[in-house]
Design a protein around this nucleic acid. Sequence first.
DNA 1: CATCGATGTTGAG
DNA 2: TCAACCTCGATGG
Length: 314
Amino acid sequence: MPEGHSVHRIARQFARSFTGPPVTVSSPQGRFTAGADRLDGHAILQARAVGKQMFLEFDHHLWLRVHLGMYGAWDFAGDIAVGPISPAERGGRVVGANEDSPWSIGAPRRTRLRMAESERLQPEIDVWPPEPIGQVRVRLLTPVAVADLRGPTACAVQTVEEVDATIAKLGPDPLVDGEAGEDAFVANVRKRNVAIGQLLMDQEVVAGIGNVYRAELLFRARLDPYTPGKDIPTDVARELWRDWTYLLGVGVETGQMFTMDGLEGDELERAKTSRDDRHWVYHRTGEPCRVCGTPIAMAELVGRRLYWCPKDQV
DNA sequence: CATCGATGTTGAG
DNA sequence: TCAACCTCGATGG
C-alpha cells in the first residue's frame, strides 16, 4: 500500500546498500525463477523510482521492475540504512553508493528492516544469510546485504526500451521531473472533464499519489473532490502540484505521511504516534472536521474510498 | 481466534 | 468488470 514517498525511499535503500558488488538473485518462492536467472550474478548500477514503480538496472542493461501494489513489501537485512534519508540522497535518480556509508566487505550487521507503506525494524537476524520469511518472490543477496520481495503486484525483467515505455505512460513525479513536471500536471488536469478526486489517483496524470495523499491534498487545498479538472483554475492546479511536491519531500525525508502542518505540543505528538490522529480527513468518516466540526463525508469513487469535508471543500 | 479490509496495479474474460 | 496478489493490522466474538 505504499504511495510514492515509500518507493523513493526504497530506491535509495538499494542505491546505498546494493550498488557495487555482484548480486545473487533467486526466487525462493519459485514463481520468478526464470527472471531471477536472467539477473543472477550481475551488479546493480542504479536504482530509480518513478511514482510507485521502482527500477533496478543491472550491469548487462536488463532492469528489474517492481510495483508493490496493495500489500507488497521489501524486507532488508544486513548492512543497510535505517532512519531519515540525507539531503545528499534527494532526487529521483540515485547512482552509486552513499559516501556516508560506502559499500564495504565485512561481517553483515544484524539489522532487519521492513519497508512497505511504512518502515519497521524487525528482530535482528542471527544467521547469515537469514532464512526467507513467507512467500519471497525475489531475493537479492550481496556479501553484506539482502533484500526479500514479498507480495508484489508487478515484478518483471525489462529491457531499457520496456522501461522507457513503462515510464512514458506515467505522469510527472516531482522528484523525477522537477519544475517541468508542474506544467505537465497542470495540462493533464485542465484538459480532462473528470473529477479532480479521480485525476489525482490516475497515475497517467500524476505519478505517486495514492488514496491517503489524494484525500489530504484536496483538503489542504479546500477543493471539492468532484470539481472537473477543466474547471480548476491554473493557479489552483499549480498550488496542488506544489503542495504534492512539498508533501512528497517530507514523506521521503521522514518515511511518514505527515500532512498536518503547524501542529505543536500534544497535537504534534498524537499525529506522530497515533494513526488515527494523523490525517485531516483520510479514514475519518463521520468524525468531526478538525477545522469546522462538520462530519467527514465518504463515498466510493472508481472503486476507492474518497474522504472529504463537505463544508470546507468547495 | 476468525474475519475483514487496505495507502494498487495487472491481466483474464 | 472483477479476481489475483497472499500480507497484516484492526475489528469483533
